[in-house]
């Protein structure tokens, strides 16, 4: 029997999709370990003892200072060294929703290097509201992430559930640079009518692009390709019965299998 790589799922106060994330990791062959930030901070549990890190969704600290902002601060100030080591070693790191927001705001997923500083962010949805609905997204074929490359072109159907998921770049040049550098990991697709056969990019149009993200970007990776962040929730589509309607397909599980595989 193959060993199950230990996957760290940090829990901050207000994290709430950690249990589903753990379920997806487990089903994908990993050994999920939900650990409170306080235990990591106290050193009771070590980041280094894990083969991969999954930052799950939720509302860490209530998102009072902006989604993921305080968790980002903690990742940077308390765990900067541990995370730098993990990135250096190429350990897969996946941030989903609030985890993605925290990765962006912590600087771990900051887009292309610019003299002016970080040029991308996740901000309020263009309709100003929290939005929960099923979307279709594709793994960008040109994405540089090694572990995502295993599922290049994969189409996933799963829900989004966020108020601040709109991916925005400081200027259009940033998007171009990111596309060219293979930093775009996921884009929202127009699912078209049933049967579910994506007909093309979402084209910025609601509801296929649920939040008004620039260039339909649903997720990105860093220059090493190990760190990946995404707004939608593939962990909520790992069983057939979770899908609202239509023919089989679009499971998020292959994504987690690639993630866990890369941790071996």
């Amino acid at each position: 029997m193959m060993t199950r790589p230990p996957v760290l799922i940090p829990h901050a106060s207000g994290t709430n999709r950690d249990l589903e994330a753990a379920q997806a990791v487990e089903l994908a062959g990993g050994d999920p370990r939900i650990v409170h930030i306080n235990s990591l901070r106290a050193g009771h549990v070590k980041w280094a003892d894990h083969a991969a890190i999954l930052l799950p969704g939720g509302f860490s600290y209530g998102d009072s200072l902006g989604a993921g902002a305080r968790l980002a601060l903690e990742l940077r100030t308390w765990f900067g060294d541990e995370l730098a080591v993990a990135v250096h070693k190429g350990r897969p790191i996946l941030g989903i929703c609030n985890g993605f927001q925290a990765l962006v705001k912590s600087g771990l997923l900051s887009g292309p290097d610019r003299p002016e500083g970080r040029g991308i962010t996740l901000t309020h949805n263009s309709n100003g509201r929290f939005e929960c609905r099923w979307v279709t997204l594709g793994v960008e074929p040109s994405c540089r992430s090694g572990w995502l490359g295993e599922v290049s072109g994969l189409v996933v159907r799963c829900p989004v559930a966020h108020g601040e998921g709109r991916f925005v770049a400081a200027d259009p040049g940033v998007i171009g640079t990111m596309s060219d550098a293979g930093l775009v990991a996921f884009r929202y697709l127009d699912a078209g009518a049933l049967p579910v056969e994506p007909t093309g990019p979402a084209g910025g149009v609601h509801p296929a692009n649920p939040n008004g993200s620039d260039a339909d970007i649903a997720g990105i990776c860093d220059a090493t390709g190990a760190v990946v962040g995404m707004m939608p929730h593939p962990e909520d589509h790992i069983f057939d019965w979770q899908r609202p309607s239509g023919p089989p397909g679009g499971s998020g599980l292959p994504l987690f299998k690639a993630f866990v595989e890369a941790a071996r």
Binding site: E131, W134, L194, S245
Partner: peptide, 22 residues
């Protein structure tokens, strides 16, 4: 309905809106 997270927990089998166009 879309302002409520009706998916968190991954346990929603029949949701408030149904059909191919939800």
């Amino acid at each position: 309905v879309h302002r409520y997270d009706h998916e968190v927990g991954g346990g929603t089998v029949v949701r408030p809106l149904v059909g191919p166009h939800a």
